[in-house]
């Protein structure tokens, strides 16, 4: 009942308010996204991953740090579904808790990066001239490094750990968003409603914050979704190279780094977190791919 009401309200041809129009376009995106099976698989995996990570304390059969040296490197069994690692810790429990680390890192990076990229891009695009040139040069410099290499160098200059890894990935991740936001800003800068705002005496900051930024947000969301898998893989790679989350943290990349020593004999200890990284990253790629199809039909 509520749902069908929402449907007719959102799909109304003549929306009465701004929020109704926003919900309407979002709902239309959802409707076409729902027809793409890959996107739905991706979304389901992501939701499951988030739920499992959040509920880790309830679901994990053991304490992820609890060692049982008498039962090291055990194979899969009823007591330990995915076996145990080199200190006898339950791999399943560590996997669940590791999801929290990965999820936390991804969320932290996005929370840091999206506003920075959006801000720099909108400011560059709106003011133009010398401000634009200076900010875009800065963006080009950071775009000139492969992400993982720059992140590695940054972490080396700081101190290996989750916080440094988040900062390093954030430092390397903002330039594409700034580019995107700038391009979007350039298309709306000359429109009549912006001119009208200016005439009523709105300050440039008010126009950027209230009128330009909201218009840039949707394409930014798509871009972030597409970028998620790359962020996850970079975080895991940093962990694997010993520059991200440090053991005993159950971060998936760090788990693989310790388990690679005995990969030939106890392969499951490294393989299970590997599959987890793959699944989550694939899910984000599926979802992002579908989102792009819906929002940018030209790329099909």
């Amino acid at each position: 009942m509520i749902l069908s009401n929402f449907r007719s309200w959102a799909l109304d041809e003549a929306p009465a308010s701004r929020s109704q129009a926003t919900w309407g376009s979002a709902y239309r995106v959802w409707l076409s996204l729902r027809r793409n099976p890959l996107s739905m698989i991706g979304l389901a995996i992501i939701l499951a991953f988030v739920a499992l990570s959040l509920a880790a304390p309830l679901l994990a059969p053991y304490d992820p740090a609890a060692q049982d040296l008498g039962n090291r490197l055990a194979a899969s069994s009823g007591a330990h579904w995915f076996g145990t690692d080199e200190l006898g810790r339950d791999v399943l429990s560590r996997l669940l808790y590791g999801g929290r680390v990965t999820l936390g890192m991804v969320v932290a990076v996005v929370v840091l990066v999206a506003p920075i990229g959006l801000g720099i891009g909108c400011i560059a695009g709106y003011f133009g001239g010398a401000v634009d040139t200076a900010l875009m040069r800065l963006t080009d410099i950071f775009l000139a490094f492969p992400r993982l290499i720059l992140a590695l160098a940054f972490v080396a200059a700081m101190k290996p750990g989750v916080e440094s890894a988040i900062l390093a990935i954030a430092l390397t991740a903002w330039p594409p968003y700034a580019r995107l936001a700038r391009a979007e800003t350039l298309t709306v800068r000359g429109s009549d409603f912006i001119a009208a705002c200016r005439l009523t005496g709105a300050s440039p900051w008010r126009i950027i914050l209230r009128h330009v930024m909201p218009l840039c947000t949707p394409s930014l969301i798509v871009r972030v979704t597409l970028d998620m898998s790359s962020i996850i893989i970079t975080a895991a790679s940093l962990g694997f190279l010993g520059m991200g989350a440090q053991p005993p943290s159950p971060e998936w990349g760090a788990m693989i780094a310790t388990a690679k020593r005995f990969i030939f004999d106890q392969w499951w200890v490294a393989t299970v977190p590997g599959i987890a990284i793959f699944l989550v990253s694939l899910a984000f790629n599926f979802l992002g791919d579908g989102l792009r199809d819906v929002l940018d039909p030209k790329g099909r």
Binding site: S237, F240, I256, K260, F264, G274, F278, S281, L282
Partner: peptide
């Protein structure tokens, strides 16, 4: 082709390398 390519892009190089060695 799309699924095969997306999968290739989703798997971390170090995981695939370790599995390949194994």
């Amino acid at each position: 082709i799309r699924i095969v390519c997306l999968a290739g892009h989703s798997v971390p190089v170090f995981v695939l390398s370790l599995l390949s060695l194994l």
